[in-house]
Design a protein around this nucleic acid. Structure first.
Lengths: 343, 343
DNA sequence: GCCAAAATTTTACGCGCGTAAATTATTTGT
DNA sequence: ACAAATAATTTACGCGCGTAAAATTTTGGC
């Protein structure tokens, strides 16, 4: 096994009989050296435990092998999941993911960008906070570092954007709800932190009007990322003050819906589809917990595997080309209706 | 504002009139230079945008300012929350947190340790996977890097351990359940990944026997980290095959309980306390979602702020001392009963 | 078995900063 | 105002690796 440890490439060079520059080449890309050489190196690596000093490497390389991943709120399992997929793809691409959460806080988001900038990443994948983001700071960052946005977009920031087609996905579930029962009221935060939320509101209104129906909004207060709490408290209030004049509620996202379901339960309203139920509740996103709510939540699934895959592909090809995108491409994926028992 | 940018300390030295070694001292500890010097440096920093190259710094420092944080499963909001608190404390302590998730996978856990070792962290805070952890690899890591364990312990690995007093916390909720209704059956995974789970099982048995009652276990299959799913499927099975001969179920953790609640709901069993309810269900951990289940989950809260604070304090003092712990100290915190409506 | 092409080695320099020792300047106490 | 203590500067070296250019070796094709 690991006999004596080796401290640097120089020493590895002497014990392996391969010159240091060739070793350097090998570590940057094992396939760039001759097969016979590669074998010798790998044989030496088996007996001598050695790995290049990552700091010395990155100091001298034009570009590091780091890719930053910034998400707005990691305690949200949705972002935890998408971050995990992205991490794996980044590793697969031969890069090193650096995951940072903004914890729903714009100052933290800037700090994250600052912190990333100091490690000179080859590229960054970022899901911005949205409304609260410091746009000027983000712009400055994007000018320095190739950045691909996902989940939600800010202006025309970044080289590309991958997200959800909110008009399609909200349209789908609104039509589904209308076809299977009463038209839905839209339950949302009054001043959401997230641009997607505005798009969903507009998509709801647009779809309802297209169907010849009158859109109705229930807008609740709250400006934190504790969506369940906001949905719960807003839901309690909406139910108790009889703001609902339909038996169908479409929540702007699943986390709000989870809170709303808790409120409905507390008020003794049975949620589900059919004559014996008081209320239908639907969400949006297919949150990891949506299938375990009571009752299981009807929602629209985001194809986050697609979002993750395409985002990573985009940043990798940007890095490989060494250039900036000629034009900012926006790619929107469709949502898929997930019919469960809540609506 | 930022006029011309400065590329290295040398240039900052010339424009600020302060020598480079002094600047180096300043960046390592601003308070180590004279106040007048500090002022001059900070004035220069205002006009010239400069930050030291982190790679060059870390290459030459004996010890980096990095602290690794390894959690078993970041998509679990419990770990996301505790990681967030730890991150903040680490930053407050003047260090740089590097957060890594093992995604419930032992190979990933080793990769994380490997990856951390290559950045030569000053210390590491780690919540190990447990049963699946590669103990030999972890031991080798701990021999190299000062490591403090939290949440769950493996053997006597690491310099210290901070976790929950499962005997106390399970004892508390078992007694509560017995005092307010029928004695609970214990619902858990047959072969949990997590040592805490075994401790909880034993704590349940011990407490029941102390109370002169017969412990009963419902053990469900599953060896992934999808606890809700396992709880749901196991719960469905347990209910349908009539394994319950008490109306009270204590789940080994809240995520299992969330799944179990979904199963109970699907089977039409009303969960709550009182004559009109079919079942009482309690959990353990006070998971962030526990207050939004239907009905809200009675559980035991872990004091994760305390666990986080003490763990960070421990690693910081270890780093400061530059030594290894003389003996491995285990600190267990008490859980606190959270009475909600599910039991 | 020869030659051009490709891979490797040699040589040499630089990256940006940490750090140690010796020297010089500044502050502090009296 | 002076000596002692403290801080800053100068000088010099090293960290581990990237990388470029030139010299050398190996490879593959015919």
């Amino acid at each position: 096994m690991q006999n004596s440890k080796i401290r640097n490439m120089e020493e590895l060079a002497s014990v392996s009989g391969i010159s240091r520059p060739t070793l350097s080449k090998y570590f940057n890309d094992p396939d760039s050296v001759r097969a016979s050489t590669r074998k010798k190196i790998e044989a030496a690596l088996e007996t001598y435990d050695y790995r290049p000093n990552i700091y010395a490497m990155n100091q001298n390389r034009r570009l590091t092998k780091n890719i930053g991943i910034v998400v707005p709120y990691l305690a949200d399992p949705f972002f935890a999941e998408i971050a995990r997929v992205i991490e794996d793809l980044v590793i697969e691409g031969g890069f090193r993911p650096i995951l940072l959460s903004s914890h729903g806080n714009s100052e933290q988001e800037i700090e994250n960008l600052d912190s990333l900038q100091s490690i000179r990443p080859a590229g960054v994948l970022m899901a911005p906070l949205g409304r609260n983001s410091d746009i000027a700071a983000a712009e400055r960052f994007c000018a320095e570092v190739p950045t691909v946005l996902f989940d939600n977009s800010i202006g025309d920031l970044g080289e590309a954007f991958f997200g959800l087609d909110n008009l399609q996905s909200i349209g789908t579930i609104v039509k589904y709800l209308c076809n299977t029962g009463e038209a839905p009221v839209f339950f949302e935060m009054r001043t959401p932190t997230n641009p997607n939320a505005y798009k969903r509101r507009n998509a709801y209104i647009e779809t309802m009007e297209k169907l010849g129906l009158t859109p109705q909004l229930i807008q609740v207060d709250g400006d934190t990322w504790e969506f369940e709490k906001i949905g719960y408290e807003g839901g309690l209030d909406a139910i108790r003050t009889r703001q609902l004049n339909t038996n169908t509620v479409l929540c702007s996202n699943d986390r709000l819906a989870i809170g709303f379901l808790a409120a409905a339960y507390e008020c003794g309203l049975r949620v589900g589809r059919g004559p014996s139920y008081a209320l239908r509740v639907a969400g949006h996103d297919d949150h990891p917990y949506a299938r375990f709510t009571c009752p299981p939540l009807t929602t629209v699934a985001q194809d986050y595997a697609a979002i993750a895959t395409k985002s990573v592909e985009a940043i990798l090809s940007l890095i490989e080309s060494g250039e900036r995108a000629k034009s900012r491409v926006t790619t929107l994926f469709s949502g898929k209706l997930i019919e469960r028992v809540s609506a």
